[in-house]
């Protein structure tokens, strides 16, 4: 009789179908998009983009910096700002430790200065592998300091977002980082500073509702998930599967919320070009 509820339940809705895990050799990856197998080496050589369908794999912050910044130009800043379990939230201290061990990072964002094709800039790169790139006090503090530093040094800011939103384990303090960073973005902007955001997979929640959407120029990687509310939350309310491109970079472009979609292979030259354009004649 333990299936009695099943009698009154509609048969599996769209949300409950699909998805299966396959076997794969250790040194290959199956593309989540086209399902093709490829060696990890070949994917990495192609800037972690699937050589078959162009799917952009998620990448860590250091990997991103190596891809974008001139060799040896990156100088890390504010990594002495570290997260703490202020609210003594269940399992948070352990979660922080696990994330640090898994990624080698101390927080979900890496900040610093660098040059891109010779053009100097301040840079922040979020790392989705660190507790889903979520924003707590230390993430907010690092980014706010970077904008203040960039305003004082008259540097443009390039920011790569990858985040599930505010970090719930720091409660209301996380939410307030949205306002804190917005204030710092505003001051950098009033000082005439250029801010370019690159939205990468995934950029959602409180990060979308703050500094991700505050760039003078907003770029995105192809197919990146970009949205405010979680797709699952919306789907479970409506009991209806949303269109495949819902909350994608392409969806955001179509609705007028981002400036351009730039494939990873062209990101470095595009950012360098924008930095040069805003630096003026002598940089041409």
């Amino acid at each position: 009789m333990n299936n009695i509820l099943g009698l009154f339940r509609k048969s599996g809705n769209q949300l409950e179908t699909g998805g299966s895990a396959g076997l794969q050799p250790a040194d290959t990856r199956q593309c989540p998009s086209c399902k093709c197998y490829e060696t990890k080496a070949a994917i990495r050589k192609n800037k972690s983009v699937c050589p078959h369908c162009g799917y952009h794999y998620r990448i860590g912050a250091r990997h991103r910096i190596r891809m974008i910044a001139d060799p040896n130009s990156f100088c890390e800043l504010f990594d002495n700002v570290r997260p703490q379990d202020s609210l003594r939230f269940p399992n948070y201290a352990q979660k922080l430790q696990n994330a640090a061990e898994a990624t080698g990072e101390t927080e979900a964002v890496v900040c610093g200065t660098a040059s891109i094709d010779g053009q100097p800039c301040a840079l922040f790169v979020m790392d989705a592998r660190f507790i889903m790139g979520s924003m707590g006090s230390a993430v907010g503090e690092r980014i706010a300091r970077l904008f203040e530093y960039a305003a004082a040094q008259q540097l443009p800011v390039i920011g790569f977002t990858a985040s599930g939103g505010a970090r719930m384990q720091e409660g209301i303090l996380s939410l307030m980082q949205m306002a804190k960073v917005s204030g710092a973005v505003g001051r950098h902007s009033e000082a005439g500073g250029l801010y370019v955001t690159v939205l990468t997979d995934p950029t959602t929640g409180g990060v979308t509702a703050s500094f991700a959407m505050q760039g003078d120029i907003i770029l995105a990687e192809p197919k990146a998930l970009v949205g405010f509310a979680g797709k699952r939350v919306i789907e479970q309310t409506t009991k209806r599967r949303l269109p495949a491109d819902f909350q994608s970079a392409e969806f955001m472009l179509q609705h007028g919320f981002i400036d351009a979609i730039v494939p990873r292979a062209r990101l470095r030259e595009t950012l360098a070009g924008l930095l040069r354009l805003h630096a003026g004649k002598e940089a041409r």
Binding site: N80, V81, R82, P83, Q84, S86, G136, S137, A138, G140, E141, A144, E170, L173, M176, Q177, A179, K180, G183, A184
Partner: peptide, 10 residues
């Protein structure tokens, strides 16, 4: 708002 948040500074 700048002062809200708790973190360590090493």
């Amino acid at each position: 708002f700048r002062s809200i948040g708790q973190y360590q500074e090493t």
